Amino acid sequence: MKRRALLNSLALGAASTAGLVACSQATTSNETGSNSTASTADLPTIEWEMATSWPVALDTIFGGAQVLVDRLAALTGGRFKITPRAAGELAPPLEILDVVSQGAIPCGHTASYYYLGKSPALAFGTTVPFGLTPQQQNAWLYEGGGLKQLQELYASKFNVIQFPAGNTGTQMGGWFRKEIASVTDLQGLKMRIPGLGGQVMSKLGVTVQSLPGGEIFQALQTGAIDAAEWVGPYDDEKLGLNEVAQYYYYPGWWEPGATLELQINLDEWNNLPPEYQAAVQTAAYEANVTMLSRYETRNNEALQRLVSNGVELRAYSDEILSAAEEATFALYDEFAAKDPDFQAVYTGWREFRDRVYAWNSLNEGNFTRFSYSKLNQ
């Protein structure tokens, strides 16, 4: 019943997008022939709080939640207001799905791969190792059937509906206190890395920890961990990770295009007017595009600052990348064999990945390689 209600509400929400705009802008003629603006006065006033997984100081990633709620308020004439709260204010940063699912908090902004213990298929909602770039991820979610499939999974298992609401871009490969040249160098290394990337690293001999962003600096500083990944140059600089680790690796093969989510308790969602549902979807879409645009703009500038201040860039060796890729697809096969939900998502995702890789490599990839080669002549 929840799945059917979800699909019905999505259809109503999509159909009412134009109606919401019209409601705030349309004019009608009164008896004297003058025009008067239609009002949203018949729509309810709603105020929610949003739990997030992010420190406020990380203005781009927390900013994704802020962009969303600001646009939502604008689209509803201020009648639907959501206040985002920093990690830990309303719920522990890695327990957002739990409190939203329970209905303790109506909504949250988080990353789905924090909750793999509940269902490994949730990883696809954020990103998976050797997966999709940001644009490829958006294509899969919005046009490749990925979002619909994940929403059905969330509805049936967690009483939650989710929407893409941010993307960090292709991430960096993490901070290390010593150089890592081979798989042997990874043995026994203590590293903060979440999601399936963490499970792949574990297969390569790494001792994996999952820590909130606000705890990474201290863990590196005290030696509780030897390495950590967070996002990319802009956010990593804000956390001060360059002050406690010297070597900065690339590429972030485990997070080639990390999507963040707006998660809403499904009962709360179904109680919203269709106009508000449409506004939520529009606001989440804008947050998704805005966050990626900001990271793409800010990361290179931050990287240049880091390098000028002594950070040493290092590329992962082909040996490590090949071992990681092999371990990744072995892990996918293991999950697919024992988890029907993972198998269902993975099958379609893998087919989409292979098609979009071929297309991008032929067209965009060749264009980028040519243009960059000219830049460096």
Rank of each mutant, 00 (worst) to 15 (best):
T368F: 12
D354R: 09
R353T: 10
Y372P: 00
E351H: 06
N366H: 10
T368S: 10
T347V: 05
K338T: 15
A337R: 11
F352G: 08
V356H: 01
E364H: 07
R353H: 13
S371V: 04
D339V: 07
R355C: 00
Y346P: 04
W359G: 01
A337Q: 12
S361V: 13
D339Q: 12
Y357W: 08
R355Q: 07
G365R: 11
A337K: 12
T368C: 06
V356Q: 02
K374W: 04
D341M: 06
S361E: 14
W359R: 14
S371R: 06
S361R: 14
N366F: 02
Y346V: 03
Y372N: 10
Y372A: 13
N363I: 13
W349S: 03
R350Y: 07
T347E: 07
D339N: 15
A358G: 10
L362I: 08
S373F: 01
E351F: 04
N360K: 04
N366K: 12
L362D: 15
G365S: 08
K338I: 13
L362F: 10
G348F: 01
T368E: 14
N376V: 11
L375S: 04
N360L: 05
F370Q: 02
T347P: 03
F342E: 10
T347Q: 09
Y357A: 09
Y372I: 09
R355V: 01
K338D: 07
Y357G: 02
S371W: 01
F367E: 09
R355Y: 00
S371I: 03
G348L: 07
F367P: 00
G365K: 11
F342S: 10
N366I: 01
K374S: 00
R369A: 06
V356R: 00
V356Y: 01
P340F: 11
A358W: 04
K374N: 00
D341T: 05
Y372W: 04
F370D: 01
L375Y: 07
N363F: 09
L362Q: 15
D341H: 06
G348Y: 01
D341A: 08
R353G: 05
E351C: 02
A337W: 06
G348P: 00
E351I: 09
N376Y: 04
S361I: 13
F352Q: 05
T368M: 13
A344K: 13
D341W: 05
R350K: 14
E351N: 06
F370M: 01
T347N: 05
V345M: 11
D354E: 15
E351R: 09
L375A: 05
S361Y: 09
R353V: 09
D354V: 08
A358T: 14
Y346F: 14
Q343E: 11
F370N: 01
K374Q: 03
D341I: 05
Y372G: 02
R369L: 01
V356T: 09
Y372K: 13
S371D: 00
